[in-house]
């Protein structure tokens, strides 16, 4: 499991599927999730379970849903207090096939 070496003062809270997670101002969301043992951020019928891979915005495997926005790259997203996140799901039959 990922761990952080330092403990910054600027503690904030973000929510993963309604579960509160401790985060720090300026931390990348993918980093916060990995630190809390959440390595599956995205699931689809053709891809199966996926999580952060490249951490630089290239692979699109760290997708999450944020508030009302869908399929956002969590490695490019900076944590803000109160952010509500959900696993990005591509459910067969509910979306456009291109969305797989």
């Amino acid at each position: 499991m990922f761990r952080r070496l330092d403990t910054p003062l600027s503690e904030i809270t973000i929510f993963w599927e309604d579960r509160p997670l401790t985060a720090y101002q300026g931390e990348l969301v993918a980093s916060v999730l990995l630190r809390h043992g959440i390595s599956i951020t995205h699931h689809g019928p053709t891809t199966g379970s996926r999580g952060p891979y490249c951490m630089m915005g290239v692979c699109f495997d760290c997708l999450v849903d944020v508030d009302n926005r869908k399929a956002i790259q969590s490695c490019q997203l900076v944590a803000k207090d109160g952010l509500r996140l959900n696993r990005h799901l591509n459910l067969a039959g509910t979306g456009h096939p291109n969305d797989a």
Binding site: F2, R3, R4, L5, Y24, L28, S31, M55, C75
Partner: peptide
């Protein structure tokens, strides 16, 4: 990616 976590938030596994 592992190095990015180190640089961005002193995080490693």
């Amino acid at each position: 990616g592992a190095q990015t976590l180190l640089k961005a938030s002193a995080t490693g596994a």
